[in-house]
Structures are given as C-alpha cells and as structure tokens.
Design a protein around this nucleic acid. Structure first.
Lengths: 208, 208, 208, 208
DNA sequence: GATGAATGAGCTTTCATTCAT
DNA sequence: CATGAATGAAAGCTCATTCAT
C-alpha cells in the first residue's frame, strides 16, 4: 500500500509471462532452423530436426508455424530486413554527400556488410533453399530498391544511370557474395578483392 | 547342328553390339535426367521419373549408375566440359593476340556462350541441384583454371595479374549469369548489360 | 482474527456459486461441441475447437470431462432424453385412447418430431459419430422401450404384437429419418411421404 | 515344333505372370482393407494397418492406389456393383411378370440379398466411412435407379407410382438393413420380420 | 480451479534402392 | 542383362491429452 508499489503498476503479469514464453519458443525454433540451415543446408532441414535442436516437440513447432515453409518465410524476412536496414543507412549517408565515388563506396561497403553477417546462412538462403514465388518476389523487390536508389544517386553524374546502377549493384552483390560467402577457390584475400572491386567500379562510374 | 551354329556366330560383333546398346541406354538415361532437370527442376528429378522418361526400367537405371547422385555427376561433368571447351578455345585465340582488350572480350563472350546454351539446365545445376563436396570441387577447379589462364594472359600487361584475373573472371561469370540465366527483375536488356560489362572490364584492365 | 473472518464467510453460498459457474462451463462446452457437430460434423470436432468455440481453455474442458468421448456421451444422452420425452408423451396420449390408429399416428408424429428438431445434429449423432458399445446400447434401449410400449398398446388389437410393433417402430423411425434428415435423392416431398407412411402403417395394423 | 505346341500359342507368359502378380497384390490390399473395415471399422483403417494385414509394405499400397481414399472408392464401387447386379436381375424378372405382388417380392428379396452378403462391410460402408460427394452421388444414383424401376413397374397398377415406389424401396432398404445388418435389439427374428415386411408392402400396394 | 503451451504417438505419403522373375 | 513390383526409412503434419504456471 506504499506509494512506491502503487507507482510501479504491475499489470497483467501472468499474460506477459506467457507471452514471453511463447515468444521464446518461437525464437528458439527460428534459431534452431537458422542454425540447421547454415550448418547443414536445406536438405537437412526437416521439422523433426528443427524441433529436436530447439529442444521442443514437433507439436510446438506447428503451434507457432502453420508449416515448414512459414519458418523459412520468417527467416528470410528477417534476413532481408537486415539487408534493407543497410540500404536505408546507405541511402541516408548518400543524401548528405551524393558524389559518385561515395555511391560506389557505400554500395561495396553495404554488400560486404550484408555478406559478412552469417555468411553461411546467406549462402543457404540464396542458393540452397528453394524459394517460392512470393519469397523470390521479396528478394527481387529489395534488389530493385537498391538499384533504384543507386540510379537516383547517379542520375546527376552520368548518362543512362539505370544501366550503370544495375551493373554496379549486381557486381557489388555478386562479387562480394562470391568472395565472402562462397569462399571457394578464391586465390586472393577477400579484403584485397573488395578494394579492387571498389576501384573498378569507381573508375567505371567516373570515366564511362 | 551345334557346330554349324557355333561357327556362324561372330563373337566380337555381338559384344560390340551390346556395348553400343549399353551406351545408348546410358545416353538415353542421361538425356532424360537432363531434360527433367532443365524442364522441371531438381525437385522433380526422381529415379522413377528418369526411368519412365527414358523409356527404360528403374532397374536398368541402377544397372548403369550406382545411384541417383552418379547421374548428376555425369551431367555436371559434361556441362563443365562444355565450359572448358570454350575456355580452351578462348585460350588459343588469346595466345595469338595476347592483348588485354582481347582477354576481356574473349572472357565476356565465353561466359555469355556458357550461359546462353541451355540456360535452364545451367540454372538448375548452379543453384538448384545440391552439389556435394567433390562436385563443388570440380566446379571450383574449372573456375581456377580460367583464372589462371586469364592471369597468365594479363601478366605482361598489368601488375598483380592474379587479383585482376579473379575480379575479371568472377565479374564476367556472375554478371552474365544473373542477366542471362536468372533474368529476374533486370530493368535493362541483357545485351546492353553485356556490352556495358565489357566496357567496364576493359577500362579496368587498361587503366588500373 | 481468524474467528472473525471465518464467521463472516457464508460457506454454502460460495460453493453454490462455484457449482453454478461449473455448471455454466459444462453447458458452454456441451453447447460448443453440439454446434460444431451439427455445423461441421464429427471430423471437425476436436477438443481444441470445442474449447475455442466455448470460450474456455482446453484445460478447462478436461477439468469437467475426462476425455473427448465423455462429451459425446452427454450430448447423446440428452438427445436420447428428448426422444424419450416424446415417447412418454405419446404413451400418455395412447393410454387415454388405445386405438391402433392412434398408435400409428402418435408413432409417426413422434418420429417426425424427433427428426425435425436439429436434424443436422441428429444426422451427426446417428451416422457420423462412431458410437462405442455402451453408447450403442443406450440407443438400442430407447428403441426397445418404444417397441415395448407400442407392442403393449397393440396387444389387445392384433395377434403377434411384438412383430408388428417392431415393424411399425422401425419403419416410422427409418423412413422419417431418411426423408427428413438425409434428404438425399428423395423425389417426393417429406410431407407427402409422411402421410403416405401413416396410411401404409394404419392399413397394416388394421388389416393384417 | 509339333502341331500341338503351335496350336497352344503360349504368348507373353512373362508379362502375364507379372500382371497376375500385380492383380494379386491389388486384391490382397483390397481384401485387407475390406476386412479391417468390416472387423474394426473406419477408425481402424489406416494405410499401415492395411499394408500389414495384406502382408505387403506401405509402398506397395501406394504403388496401386494414389491414396487411402482411392481404396475406399474401389471397395464401394464393387459393393454398389453387387447391389446393381441384384437390381438388374430383379428388373429382368419383373419384366416377365409385372404384377404389383411380384414387384414387392423381388424388392424385399433383393434387399435381403444385398444386406445378407457381408453385412458388417455393408454396415461400415453405409454408416461408418465418411463418403465424399462423388461417392455419395454414386450411392444415391443406385437408389434412384431402383426407385425408377419400381415406379415404372407399378405405373400400370397404382396412381402416384413415384410416391409409392419411394416408400416401398426405402422401407425395404431401411428395414432389411436394420434387421440384417444392425442386428441390435431386434426382439424378433430377421426372417419373420422380412416376411411381415413383405406382407405389409403387398397390402399397401394392392389396397391403397 | 483456470490456463494454454507443450507433448508425442500416430497417420499419410514419397522415393531411392533392391531383387525375384 | 532387363524388368518393375516391392521395400521401408523418413518426412510433414494432427490432435487428444498433460502439466507447469
């Protein structure tokens, strides 16, 4: 009955506790699926394995996800959200300093960032998991957004900005992906290659 | 009676006929698997479907291939062999005219060729079929070979040819692949992009 | 302190309130199960659905019923009780006027009544829900009771009243059920058929 | 090379043997499913049980039937075919002697026949297995056919033959079903009841 | 008592592989 | 060798029931 306790307003503690538990279960399932995906690939991702690694029962998996596909949906959404965050950050940086050089630098740095965080998951999602139409559309939409932003940033500097933007974005994406994610048969270090990529792209936008 | 019939049977021709028939069966199976792969993707590629489309029994499939994986092995090998043929052709052209510009041109033309011939099969093999370690190694080996050839061709023109060769090869491969094979969300035509890619790479090797 | 508080608490009212609440919960669960059964059939009747439609938790369902089967037991009991009420009413009517014609009329009217009230529930209970031995016995007992009452009412009018009663009851039950409940492929209206059934049965008891 | 052997023409013995084996497997699966259905009901009918009782693997069940439903389809088809055979037989008998009495006799005898052969299977199919739309339509079609045939046979004898035919057919079906198939709580023998049913129906058609 | 998250046995279906014919 | 029927492990998913809170 003291003022202090009255002020703290401990409302709905039971429901909150339950909600927390539910959320934790959801997270533990997503974490489990993510780890299986990045450690053993799509082929090893089955609902029983997800449940076992998550330390829950299959039933619990289906308590929170209508089917296996839906789990991938969430993982992909979160992954794309990370990518979009980097884009948005890049876009705001560019708006302050819209030079062609800055665009190139942000682009390469952005894709290095995207491909550096959990590269194995990125690999699984981009070339192992069979994405359905809606999922592929989401991926494409993110790419289109980046190209559009880049194109806009370049529009005052170069002619045919759309073409240049497409080339820049795809080159930055594909090459950082190959060097950081695939990591196979690359005879040169990823850092050196990233720098070189930046050089090449800068030269291209400034000259062509 | 028996003598007569025995004498008339020419032994070798029979075995040859059998071998020819065996070879035909192998081919018809591989053709079947290839078509299923390029028409309906990895998910639709099961041994019964392969046998049915090939017009043979499942048993025959296992007569000539120890398991499903082995079929993919051969298809992949042949696909890589096509790629290597283009490389070797390019290498011979380069040896006559080892200019940096020629290297870039051959490289882009080569990858356009690789990605234009049966793009759907290429797509299936490169991002649908789950390659095992050995298969991935073979793919990597071909890539390494191309990089080495390119590096050698560039060695008299530029400093750090290894880095430049890696970037050139990966850019030509990844970008032509994306534009010709994936064809998703590309706002500019593949031809324009290929030309632009060639421009960018030429500029890069000549200037940097 | 303890005495005071103990004295002030009126024990019985509390328990009664609880019992009332318990009874309400039981009712709401039964109502929920009944509606699901009549609206969507046995296949849709699962304990989670019952709880959700009842607005209670699954746990509560199991608080009041040992298992899913027990819920059906009560629903069936009540349904049979309705049938028995109609029987008892008919029996009292007959006792005032025990003519054979009256028996037939009451019988047909009774079964029409039984099958007209919530026909979909009746349908579900009689041909959708898999009744266990005990449940089937209860259904049979009700039928036996009707046959016995009918047989008694007919005993002064006809010879072999048991046989006639069995035929009368089963005909009235089965045919009104088919025309009112099943409603499949019936080329004539239910009313016409009911009248015709009554004619046939009257003729039979009066003549044979 | 003798005339005798030539005359016998032993063609395609291998294929025939295989076809026989396939057919045997199909039959053993259907037999298994039928027995489970009539012995333990729809609830016990699962594909693993069918395979085990049939002495084959689950895979074999799916070799011959696309899904569990399809097995029921065939069992139901065969069951209905038996019913139709009795109908056709009855129809031909009636055409020789189209008296109302003969119609009643054939009808009751026909339904007794239908319900006497494997009554437990009949019970399972008619009140345990959840028939889908198409299956229910097939059942209804058989019933409609019987009503139409009966109606046609009565048309020269009575007024409103459709109504009378519906009543006759449904009574014969429902009552023989109850007495022969359900066999529950029937206080009088099935034979006596069948005779009495025939009496009742005869009286009805001749008098009303 | 009430809650609803968690459980897991059990069901349907697929498909790489084997083996009797 | 060819055949294709047969196999059975394994995967996706459901739902009656339990139990920690």
């Amino acid at each position: 009955m003291t003022n202090a306790t009255t002020k703290k307003r401990p409302r709905k503690p039971v429901r909150t506790a339950k909600q927390r538990r539910s959320k934790e279960t959801v997270e533990v399932i997503l974490e489990s699926a993510t780890r299986i995906l990045s450690d053993h690939g799509w082929a090893a991702l089955n609902t029983n394995a997800i449940a076992k690694r998550a330390g829950v029962s299959v039933g619990s998996v289906y308590e929170y996800f209508p089917n296996k596909h839906a789990i991938i949906d969430i993982i992909l959404d979160r992954h794309l959200a990370q990518g979009e965050a980097l884009i948005n950050h890049g876009a705001s940086v560019i708006s302050d300093n819209p030079s062609a050089e800055a665009v190139v630098q942000i682009l390469v740095a952005g894709f290095v960032g995207i491909h550096s965080d959990d590269p194995k998951l990125h690999r699984a999602l981009s070339s192992d998991v069979p994405l359905n139409g809606a999922q592929q559309n989401r991926v494409d939409a993110v790419r289109a957004k980046i190209i559009n932003l880049t194109s806009a940033a370049l529009s005052t500097h170069v002619k045919d900005p759309k073409t240049k933007a497409t080339l820049l974005v795809d080159a930055a994406d594909a090459l950082t992906h190959r060097w950081l994610v695939d990591e196979v048969g690359v005879p040169v270090s990823a850092e050196v290659l990233s720098n070189e990529l930046e050089n090449m792209l800068r030269l291209y936008v400034l000259t062509a």
